[in-house]
């Protein structure tokens, strides 16, 4: 395939950092979305015991974050 020829057009000193930055942005946005929209991720970061699947109520969404902020 010709994909390798992209480095004849895009300087690696520009393309590689851009590529990695894209991966960072994607990863941060997914983890942020999980943090805001699940109960188990904030609980994990608080060091809570892993919730059994039966315990877990509906994902509270942003409301959960407000609760966390108030508890601080």
């Amino acid at each position: 395939m010709i994909n390798g020829k992209m480095w004849l057009v895009v300087k690696p000193t520009v393309g590689i950092p851009l590529f990695l930055a894209g991966v960072v942005v994607a990863s941060l946005s997914v983890h942020t979305a999980l943090l805001l929209n699940t109960a188990y991720f904030p609980a994990f970061l608080r060091g809570a015991a892993p919730a059994r699947t039966s315990d877990v109520g509906p994902a509270p969404g942003v409301a959960m974050s407000k609760v966390m902020l108030e508890q601080r």
Binding site: G4, L8, V9, V10, V23
Partner: peptide, 25 residues
């Protein structure tokens, strides 16, 4: 040597490393 300073062979080699890294990821 192309404008980016690489030859065609070097570009293919570099792309091989990018693909390898992406597979590891």
């Amino acid at each position: 040597v192309f404008p980016t300073g690489l030859t065609a062979g070097q570009a293919e080699e570099l792309h091989g490393y990018m693909i390898g890294g992406t597979r590891s990821f």
